[in-house]
Simulated assay, not measured.
Amino acid sequence: MLNKTIIVILASCMLAGCAIPGSTLSTRDKNVVEGEDDSADTLSSRINVYPLTPNLINKLKYNQLVPTTQPNDRLEKQLASYQYKIGPGDVLNVTIWDHPELTIPAGSYRSSEEAGNWVHSDGTIFYPYIGKLKVTGLTVTQVRSLITERIKKYIEAPQVDVNIAAFRSQKTYVTGEVNEPGPQPISNIPLTLLDAINRAGGITKDADWRNVTLTHHGKEEHLSLYALVQKGDLTQNRLLHKGDIIHVPRNDAQKVFIMGSVENPKMVKIDRTGMSLTEALASSGGINEAEADATGVFVIRSTGLANKQEKGSDKPLADVYQLNMQDATSLVMGTEFELKPYDVVYVTTAPVARWNRLMTHLVPTINNFNNLTQGMLRVKDWE
């Protein structure tokens, strides 16, 4: 009779879930709003599961980049034809050979910037005999020709030289995770994105160098310093212009979540060179050999459609990649499988481990029931 009672209690606990301790959030007295297409069958049909194979891994290579041996034709043409355009705030040095009276000497206590011709806010400079001269938007070659043409009236065969003593009118800005953020002056030497990052002291250890933003005339362009520096993709470089903003974000979004039957479930960040599935598992102490199901190592990757609210869309909400680690060669595939931000790595628990875990919670209850039953029998015998 006693054994039958234990079996009944065990079966009841398994069905009701009363043997598993832990907190719960009841929705019994709540207003539960159900979505139109949120049934289990509908959601399951929008989840794709892919067993990991070498061919699939080759197709999924994250940021698979081929080094670009040929130069960036567009950038090379821009650099070859680059000429600095003068703007307000710049300082020009104008020299007319054999006419020192028209050239203001710098002297021992005056720098060329202080002795030069300041470009005023109206875009003009003042020069003897010529008066005001509009120079903004012109190159030094054009200004030289303009001054030569005007001064001919007063000097026979003038030899004019013009150079820029101070570049102050044009700047680009480097912000975010660089060692020395701030403005970078644009000069007669072309300034590229890579040059500006180097001038800013390089990126910090917390920089997300795969998702650098370049804002030009209000339009954003996403570029990858990782592709440029690590993979030699020269198409990621850009010639910078006045007012351009380079922003290097933090790597806060480079998160991967490791859960399930691993030694130390946690959240890790993808470093600069990326993170493979094997590296993620190793960072959490590896799978729990006593509990894990080696056939059930999953990477759950959202497609981002859940936030787009595409009503009636039959596109997948997530892709799930399954790695079978029963074979040692699967570790090679895990090493080649690159994780993406917000991937969830989940290691399932073996059925026998789940049963053992259940029994671990039930045994104290059974022992207490046996002790209670034996006590009741003793009382009955005493009576």
Rank of each mutant, 00 (worst) to 15 (best):
T5S: 14
T5N: 14
G17T: 03
G17H: 01
C18K: 08
A19T: 11
T27Q: 07
V33E: 07
T42E: 09
P51W: 06
T53Y: 02
P54M: 06
N58M: 02
Q70E: 09
Y84C: 00
D90M: 02
N93R: 04
T95Y: 13
H120L: 14
G131R: 11
K134M: 15
T136Y: 05
R144A: 14
A157D: 11
V160S: 00
F167V: 04
V174H: 00
V178Q: 00
E180G: 06
G182K: 04
P183T: 03
P190I: 07
N198S: 11
A200R: 03
G202M: 04
K205H: 13
H217S: 08
H222P: 07
K231I: 09
V248S: 01
S261Y: 07
S261Q: 05
E263D: 06
K266Q: 04
G286P: 00
E289K: 10
A290C: 09
D293N: 06
D293F: 04
A294S: 08
V299F: 04
I300S: 03
R301Y: 02
L305P: 11
K311D: 13
A318L: 12
Q326I: 15
A328M: 15
M333A: 12
M333Y: 11
E336W: 11
F337I: 08
P341I: 01
Y342E: 14
Y342K: 15
D343Q: 03
P351K: 15
A353Q: 04
W355T: 05
N356R: 03
